[in-house]
Design a protein around this nucleic acid. Structure first.
Lengths: 234, 234
DNA sequence: GAGTTTAAAAATCTCGAGAAAAGTTGTTGA
DNA sequence: TCAACAACTTTTCTCGAGATTTTTAAACTC
């Protein structure tokens, strides 16, 4: 089930997996623009694999809804739209709040410890949040923090779907962090989330998480259309 | 996004798609047993395609979580378990009830008409529900009825996830219909669901749908372990 | 000039064979 | 008897080339 998670980092033992990861990264980071055509014959050189291997990697990416394919007309990067992002944000609020409630209800001491640790790592990365490789580190730690938050939720399917939605949202979020029109202190939000979770205040934690996710959507929503389109085609 | 839906029936225009559908059908129907190893060299003859083509079809099935792959060890049919089915049922209750509420809130006259039509087609199939090709017809119409129920829900992601869960549940449900230990009148359940939806009684409809889904789980749960295992290995 | 038909070009889809890894079997040595 | 090792078999993974289909461009008619 978990081909989207990529937890620790079990080295890719196959070329398909390697190409899959590179492609996914390039799509999420925007190096491959939304709706861009993915010509196999051209891309196979860039990623240093054969045609069949690349096709297989692209097929894998369909699971994450980062690539779409159509009949006899090849592959494309999944298109983006504000409506889609709104849908992603709302669905994520619904699922992630429920998962968080379950996680708070069932989490044990070890979970709390993992949570504190994940928050600490994230906080350290937030202090020095300038530069691009630092940024990747922050992205990684932010993902893990959210992952640990719901780790004690027993539903594998809920977590599976959230993993997909998280990566989808990340693609959009990459925009809002660079050109951020709504002022916000993400660190404070995460801190409040941490304390509410540790104190087992499920309603409060869910409310904070909900706001946290929706704020990111409103951030992108507030970006002027021209500026956004320029970004999206980049 | 919708590689799992297969709505009307746009003829498979490619061998990959064709193999994908045949494989999915065989997995859901249980012709390919849970956890069974899927050897490419052996299967390519059965489905009349090349090795690369079959690999691609298998990669596509990972999106539906009907196939799992592992490093350098090939593909397997996704395993099954009672715990997994419970998770599927509960997650489905959560998502499908929410989708149904939204659908009831937003559905227009055309939606009502589609719903009545879908129910009628399902009812006709229920009358003559004996024989195996009749059974396939019932399965198809049951799926469409559930699909139409939530069709007016505006969230594409919710519907996408539900489509995945539906096919997962179908695999388990195939068991409970044959050896049905809990007596139930599915027709009455569907009818109550239809009327609650048309009358815009969201709470009532959600309650019925919730019971409807959970009853299927309890049906499988009530099957004696030996009998179930025999089925699962078949 | 607009729209249709025809032909060339590009891209997709498909296959079978070769390299690499995993799994199996049998043998050897304590 | 058991474990470790080695040779063999099976299977997965990978690639490049050929067959179809789509796309592009040009030529032609109305």
């Amino acid at each position: 089930m978990n081909n989207t998670a990529v937890e620790g980092l079990p080295e890719p033992k196959t070329l398909v997996e390697s190409a899959y990861r590179s492609l996914r990264r390039d799509i999420i980071e925007g190096n491959l623009a939304p709706d861009e055509k993915l010509r196999v014959e051209h891309l196979k050189d860039n990623y240093g694999v054969g045609a069949g291997t690349l096709r297989e990697a692209l097929s894998l990416l369909i699971a994450d809804a980062l690539v779409v394919s159509q009949g006899q007309r090849g592959f494309r990067v999944a298109p983006v739209s504000l409506a889609d992002f709104e849908d992603i944000a709302q669905t994520r609020v619904m699922l992630e709040c429920e998962a968080l409630r379950q996680s708070i209800a069932m989490g044990d001491d070890a979970w709390e410890a993992d949570l504190v640790a994940a928050f600490h790592r994230l906080a350290k990365a937030e202090e020095k949040r300038i530069g691009s490789e630092i940024r990747e580190e922050w992205e990684e730690r932010n993902r893990i923090f959210h992952e640990v938050l719901i780790a004690a939720c027993p539903s594998r399917w809920l977590k599976h779907f959230l993993s997909i939605l998280y990566h989808q949202a990340e693609r959009y979020r990459r925009l809002s962090l660079y050109l951020q029109p709504i002022p916000r202190d993400i660190h404070v939000e995460h801190e409040a989330l941490l304390h509410a979770a540790i104190n087992r205040e499920a309603d409060k934690a869910a409310a904070i998480l909900s706001e946290h996710i929706l704020l990111t959507f409103r951030s992108v929503q507030a970006i002027p259309a021209e500026q956004l389109n320029a970004k999206l085609q980049a």
